[in-house]
Design a protein around this nucleic acid. Structure first.
Lengths: 277, 277
DNA sequence: GCAGTTTGTACGCACAGCGTACGACCGCCG
DNA sequence: CGGCGGTCGTACGCTGTGCGTACAAACTGC
């Protein structure tokens, strides 16, 4: 193999205290996607850049563990892959606690309710009560959307701390998804300040045309914002003004209720985590 | 849980064409659970039975990949773990296709709707529209429940093929969860025959007291049953008789609609996959 | 029949990954 | 203050895991 990287550390897998085979195993597992839903071994080898025997060994291992299966020469993922995520939900009490609140919020607003967290420059849905299909993509728990163009992302970034915000703005290209998407770092910084001031965010059609969502922060006992609660609708169903007047109060109320269950009190001094984003 | 090794060979991991490090990496990842949500390195080593340096190498690798993070000496999973499951959903068209049908079913019945698949002796939720919290455990996509005590499991087993059914009955202890749980293999076999005959299943309080659910099969273009559609409620809200009269027709109609979208036609001769369960 | 393209597998070598062993760094208590 | 029990980091030499090359075998099309 010899990635030939004696240079100034291209920082690929080859490094001390790093288990190459684990990275490779994930590479194979994640190589399954909509374009390659039932690949052959050779296709996987091509996609991952690994040798055919290596992929074979990894596949056989994953098969043993129950994550892949093969029918003839074609391989596919098994539903067990979905179960891996349960370990995240199980280790974070807030997700289970939030569920009833999400249900109630969805009932009261008649719209989908979501809870999301920040992972890098993206937002990951960690709990969700769908009511109606409004986005072109099918959003489920585990789905990722860019942070800068969503109300949940704005909320999470707003309270991520100054260093994290600066780092985010420096490192993340703000892709334009619709004509309304904020793509200027300075503009986004201002938008975040506004969110911090008012205590919630509304984003109107910046990720997808006609998609409007509102979001409010969920805090843990230390006062740090650990998740964002959101209600999404299509612009046709509910004008942004009505969203602000009717939905936002419910949203803030619900987010506060979840925060309270997490041990937060309104008197808790706000804490910024920083360092991460 | 290690289903069917080819014979003697109890042999854990150590075998040709097997990547030990990958298995160990998963062991570390899955060691995070409700009892150990933010473990220390030493705790993980104890739980997995691996040496401390080994766990450290694996953790650092997982951290690089973005699946774990550490705050001081405590480690935790990141929401990225949830995203792994997306690769399963993305590779199985039926899940995306079913979503609108699930929403509509939940709307029409006023109860939670679920789609599930068989994985070993358990059933895995692969799509879900929650309406109300009825189970004591929080059911989400990726959750697992025993096949023998649920309507979805009954449906999936019923059409899994005779060999698979026999193997299931031989290998799986039918745990009693409530006084009503069927725990006798012969009884379960008869129940499955009944399900096959009538084309749907109702299970009343066999997994959890007061929990009733109905389920119907979803078929792919080959006619094989690939998933089960279910509607669940609490016995207090809806008597089993009314479930049969009102919900089952909707359920069967919806399951047929999904099957049709998957390319199945009522004229397709029924095919059994067998071999797996 | 024979090329072309696939997949499965044997095998010997190298280095990735292993665990032992040791040292640093806490906080606690005498 | 110093010893003690707990944590973690890491140096290091050895082993065997996991590596890719190379070849066999199966299937496909003409």
């Amino acid at each position: 193999m010899s990635t030939g990287d004696t240079g100034r550390e291209a920082e690929r897998g080859t490094e001390r205290d790093y288990v190459q085979s684990l990275e490779r195993g994930f590479a194979v597992l994640l190589a399954f996607d909509e374009e390659m839903s039932t690949p052959t071994l050779a296709e996987l080898a091509a996609k991952t850049g690994l040798s055919r025997p290596a992929v074979r060994r990894l596949l056989l291992t994953l098969q043993r563990l129950g994550y892949v299966a093969n029918r003839g020469t074609r391989w596919s993922l098994t539903p067990r892959v979905l179960t891996i995520g349960q370990h995240y939900s199980a280790t974070n009490a807030r997700i289970g606690l939030a569920q009833p609140h999400l249900l109630r919020l969805a009932e009261r607003t008649g719209e989908s309710a979501s809870l999301a967290e920040l992972d890098g420059a993206e937002v990951v849905y960690v709990a969700r009560v769908p009511v109606r299909r409004i986005m072109s993509i099918n959003v489920t728990v585990g789905s990722r959307v860019p942070a800068h163009a969503t109300s949940m992302g704005r909320v999470l970034l707003a309270w991520a701390g100054p260093a994290a915000i600066t780092r985010f703005l420096e490192e993340t290209p703000l892709h334009r998804h619709t004509p309304r998407t904020i793509t200027d770092p300075a503009d986004l910084r201002m938008a975040l300040a506004e969110v911090r001031e008012q205590g919630w965010a509304i984003v109107d059609g910046e990720l997808e045309e006609g998609l409007v969502s509102a979001s409010a922060p969920v805090r843990d006992r230390t006062g740090a914002v650990v998740a964002a609660l959101a209600s999404s609708t299509s612009a046709g169903r509910l004008a942004p003004e009505r969203l602000r007047e009717e939905t936002v109060p419910l949203l803030v109320e619900t987010a506060t209720a979840i925060s309270t269950e997490l041990g937060w009190s309104p008197r808790t001094p706000p804490v910024v985590r920083d360092g991460f984003f």
